[in-house]
């Protein structure tokens, strides 16, 4: 952990790599016209990725299940969002449910 130069190189490469991946889309798209259907597919791709991210971050921790408190909190937040509750309520209810369940000893 005291290997500061190596740490700096790793952070630098991660930063440059991440920026390049972010920049690739806008750089490519400005060179040619993308057909309507492809645009819809790209929009759907972003939503598929985001939804998968929601599921994995809500239900899993590392390579295993995330327990009960976190999924329950996310579920409560999701139902509130679906019922068009204000954003504050979604966030507070999700965190509150998870925290409350843990207080009761639920993992």
């Amino acid at each position: 952990m005291n290997d500061t130069p190596l740490l700096l190189v790793a952070i630098g490469v991660l930063a440059v790599g991440t920026f390049s991946m972010r920049f690739a889309g806008p750089a490519l798209r400005s060179r040619f016209e993308v057909p309507e259907r492809a645009q819809q597919l790209l929009a759907a791709a972003a939503i598929v990725l985001l939804t998968a991210l929601v599921a994995t971050s809500a239900l899993t921790d590392g390579h295993g299940p995330a327990g009960i408190a976190r999924p329950a909190g996310v579920l409560v937040g999701g139902v509130l969002a679906w019922r068009k509750a204000p954003f504050v309520l979604v966030v507070v209810a999700a965190a509150g449910t998870a925290a409350g369940l843990r207080l009761l000893g639920v993992p």
């Binding site: 929601v54 971050s57 809500a58 937040g77 999701g78 954003f87 999700a94 965190a95």
Partner: peptide
């Protein structure tokens, strides 16, 4: 504080 549930919930509300 249940913060680990806040991030997925925020994202879920956004993609709904």
């Amino acid at each position: 504080f249940g913060l680990d549930a806040a991030f997925p919930a925020v994202l879920l509300a956004l993609v709904l």
